[in-house]
Amino acid sequence: MKLIQRIEYINRLLSVVGTPDIKVITGIRRSGKSKLMDMFMERLKKENRKANVIHVNFNDPKSEPLAEYHALYDFVQKKYKQNVPNFVFIDEVQMCKGFEKAINGLHATEKFDIYITGSNAFLLSSDLSTLFTGRTFAIEMFPFSFVEFMRYYELTDIQGALDRYLKGGGMAGSYVYNNSTDKYKYIKDVFDTLVLRDIVKKYNIRNKVLLERLCDFLSDNISNITSLRSISDALTSSKVPVNDKTIGSYAGYLCNAFAFYKVRKYDIRGKKYLASQDKYYLGDHSFKYARLGTKNMDYGRAYENIVAIELLRRGYEIYAGFLYKKEIDFVALKKDEKIYIQVSDDISTESTFDREVSPLLKIHDAYPKMVIARTKHEPYQYEGIRIVDLAEWLSNRSIQ
């Protein structure tokens, strides 16, 4: 399989080399965590030929004798070298029974710079402070961005590339297949493994049918405001008996595993978060097509999902904004920065243009406002609102 350098993730790892943190690479299954670790190790070896790089990959049968924490701890300790930087890389760490004891023990020696990856369902961000006594630094990996997709396929026409990315998505493992049927089969298998094996195993879920139905419902309703009650009612009407509490638990499991991202409502006028209803976005938009097909394409929702994941990839917190019963797709926050964003497929008609800009015009603070759509034109301003082409925005981080 062709590999490309995932530059932004490597730079983030380089920025924390030598810190006492336990570095944890997280993210959805098959997002490239192991490949990133391999690339980063090669980078370290090139930059410091004296560095002692200790690597354990539990996907390799040769590592089976280390799949118990005493053995892992002893193995790494024996590999230590004095007077040089010592790096420890452990891939699929959850396959070692009691791995947290080994990692905590190695970290306590203050001799090693430690990096680990693991199954997203068994190494959750919410679990890190419980598992490890030392401070952790988590780097969340996402599927390929639009820019990485273009780099992989060596594309230069951004509009044509976006048409391909819309259908193909960011799961790079599917790129080796030549036809869409095989691509979507791979993507569906990844998602099913994520749901049926990882989540079911971790949480001991008995009602697998309900979990699958919930996945299909959320996939079919990406970007829609949804409540636990509405989901429960919809599934009950489909003869799947369920209650709000179970739906809430299952949805939480799916978000913990990065299959979906939950976005809370934010009252712009009252400046408060609303807990009763949320939006859900898929970790990669291609999962919807792989599970539900492409016959009923809703481009607007797909584009909104792509923008949601790209905002998260760029380090923003995102919320669904509401003002005077009008919805703003995203309130994006990062430190002191705030941006109000509307996403649309087509704003070429006066009615659709007015529909997208009118909620933004009602916001009277000084923060930037933007409409991202398939304009296929250069960015322009409309009464203080920046109108930006989607492909241009995805391919250029400087456009705000």
Rank of each mutant, 00 (worst) to 15 (best):
I222E: 00
T26Q: 03
T136W: 05
V388C: 12
K326I: 00
N83F: 13
I268E: 01
L394E: 01
G27V: 10
K23V: 03
L323V: 14
L333R: 13
T349S: 14
S223P: 06
F353I: 12
N59E: 15
I103S: 08
K62N: 08
I139G: 03
A257R: 07
R49S: 15
H285N: 07
L228R: 11
D127F: 04
G252Y: 06
Y316M: 01
T352M: 01
P368E: 08
S286P: 10
V56K: 02
S63G: 04
L235G: 05
A259K: 02
S344Y: 09
M1G: 12
G105P: 07
F132V: 06
D216L: 15
P143T: 05
I387D: 06
K46Y: 07
T117R: 08
D157N: 11
T136Q: 12
N305A: 10
K97R: 14
F287H: 04
G270W: 01
G160T: 11
Y340C: 08
Y153G: 05
K325D: 11
V242M: 05
I4Q: 10
D284W: 09
N296G: 00
Y380R: 15
K46V: 02
V371M: 06
V88T: 10
V209N: 06
K262T: 03
R213Q: 14
Y319L: 09
T246S: 09
E154T: 06
L36G: 04
E212M: 14
A108L: 11
D198C: 04
Q342I: 06
E68M: 05
K46Q: 11
Y316K: 10
R164N: 05
K50E: 12
S276K: 11
E8P: 00
V240Y: 13
G315D: 01
V388Q: 12
